[in-house]
Design a protein around this nucleic acid. Structure first.
Length: 481
DNA sequence: GCTCATTTGAC
DNA sequence: TCAAATGAG
């Protein structure tokens, strides 16, 4: 091996140069650095349209940042193990560093790659930059993983939080010869039909924009996060989820941005930090129970009497359920690749409870359409909604989308923004157009069943049916025992 | 085994 | 006020 055997720096869901321990290790090694990103499509969870869009821009942004230090981002597509072994051989790589991912298949793949490289006596090391705490570090007193959020997070809060990693980017060394790179545009991550126009209005998928958003959020919204996070008609959430997913911003950076500026022990800031905690918890669960993306964590739910129905699923996907709050959310999702969390809970609840559609179908749709589609968080969210996961909502809690709308979108501005055919309805009726007198409907140009549907399932009836289904499950469970 | 506590609600 | 299962200690 030559004395200057370069370091291969393998980028994955850590698309930033700061607070990047693999990067810092590569710099510290003192050899030329070859950054690479491998487009290796997962067979079970291929990237959805929205995440492909985000990834394209995140990679372009990373290319630009690397070029400031004379570095390139080598793009290769194909099987990760093959691409890496090919690069290692052709470019006499001396070390391979990366930051860890935690999806079950990725763990298996990366472990195999690590072993292979070790057997070739190549230096190889992986690091943590995506989580505050490694999933295997957190255990309850019996040595088992937590299954309930509150004790999990209390346990975490009692530990000292990790600091960001300083990267000495001025000290990077550039290789004499660069490996061939594919062209980002050739990966065709951007949509062919331009359905993404609204994406550009709402998002700036660069690290710098994410940092700006973070700074703004810490300055303004985090103080009233307790109320703001529940209002889809306000701008009260951080909107950092896609940046977090792709690692353009890390949780350590968020923690540090809050530290010293706000009191993290109470109020909005404490609540916001606990949302970062839910992200940690989701990864904890995914790591310890790797089948959760497709299987309910509570085994009795395998026998839940779902009633899969393509028409109902499609009505939900298109935002045609007849419940304005839910439809607004589903259309917001399709338009900008994101939905307010309060509305995600309501949209999920309607699909799973009122419509009796399997939560996995909802999770798949979210996976395809969300810019922040994240296996751990998406899975956790849907299992929570369906009541079949860790720390799930009690089954008898069925959201009433009308009351939720009236409570959290009080004037109906959110509905007006995303369901324009209801825009002229007065606030009193906007969450329940079927209750409006004919004269009000006429004045608002709403023709029920024509311009906007009646609820696909009436609330009381849907609620009753869901509760009955859960009730059956309970008996089945007791019989088995 | 006993006690304590529990993200997001509404009939 | 209600509900009530279950994890954690």
């Amino acid at each position: 091996m030559s004395v200057n055997a370069p370091t291969l720096l393998w980028f994955r869901l850590d698309l930033r140069l700061d607070d990047n321990p693999a990067m810092q290790a590569a710099i510290a090694r003192g050899k030329p650095i070859i950054p690479v990103f491998i487009y290796d499509e997962d067979k079970d969870w291929p990237l959805g349209g929205a995440t492909r869009w985000w990834l394209h821009h995140a990679l372009a942004d990373l290319q630009e940042q690397l070029s400031c230090h004379g570095l390139k981002l080598v793009l290769q597509s194909g099987d990760s193990a093959e691409v890496i072994s090919d690069l290692v051989e052709k470019h006499e790589i001396g070390a391979v560093f990366w930051n860890r991912c935690y999806e079950p298949r990725t763990i298996a793949r990366d472990s195999a790659i690590k072993q292979q490289l070790k057997s070739q006596t190549i230096e190889v090391e992986s690091f943590n930059t995506s989580l505050l705490f490694e999933p295997w570090e957190i255990k309850n007193k019996t040595g088992n993983p937590f299954r309930v959020f509150t004790p999990f997070w209390k346990h975490c809060l009692a530990k000292s939080f990790p600091k960001t990693i300083n990267c000495d980017l001025g000290a990077t060394k550039v290789p004499r010869a660069w490996p061939d790179s594919e062209i980002l545009d050739d990966w065709k991550l951007l949509p062919r039909i331009s359905w993404d126009a609204e994406f550009y209005k709402f998002w700036k998928p660069t690290r710098k924009a994410g940092l700006n958003r973070l700074r703004q959020f810490v300055k303004d919204a985090v103080h009233d996060y307790g109320n703001g996070r529940d209002r889809p008609d306000w701008d009260g959430t951080s909107c950092l989820s896609p940046y977090l997913h792709f690692g353009q911003i890390g949780p350590r950076e968020i923690y540090e941005a809050l530290l010293g500026k706000v009191d993290l022990t109470k109020g909005g800031p404490r609540q916001y930090l606990s949302e970062i905690g839910w992200r940690e918890f989701s990864y904890h669960i995914l790591y310890h129970f790797p089948s959760v993306p497709t299987e309910p964590l509570r085994p009795e739910f395998e026998h839940f009497p779902w009633e899969p129905d393509d028409q109902l699923l499609k009505a939900w996907q298109k935002g045609q359920t007849g419940y304005p709050l839910v439809d607004a959310g589903m259309r917001q999702l399709y338009a900008i690749g994101w939905m307010h969390n309060r509305v995600r809970m309501n949209a999920g609840s309607i699909l799973v409870k009122h419509l009796l559609q399997p939560w996995q179908d909802g999770a798949r749709w979210f996976w395809d359409t969300l810019v922040d589609a994240d296996l751990a968080s998406n899975t956790q969210g849907w299992q929570w909604t369906a009541g079949c996961g860790a720390d799930g909502a009690p089954y008898f809690r069925v959201f009433n989308p009308v009351l939720q709308g009236q409570r959290f979108d009080t004037e109906g501005d959110y509905v007006r923004r995303w369901v324009p055919e209801l825009a002229k309805l007065p606030s009193q009726y906007i969450h329940q157009p079927w209750e409006a007198p004919d004269s009000v409907l006429a004045a608002a140009d709403v023709k029920l069943c024509k311009t906007y549907p009646l609820p696909v399932v009436e609330h009381q009836q849907g609620r009753r049916r869901a509760l009955d289904a859960y009730e059956k499950l309970k008996f089945f469970h007791k019989d088995k025992k």
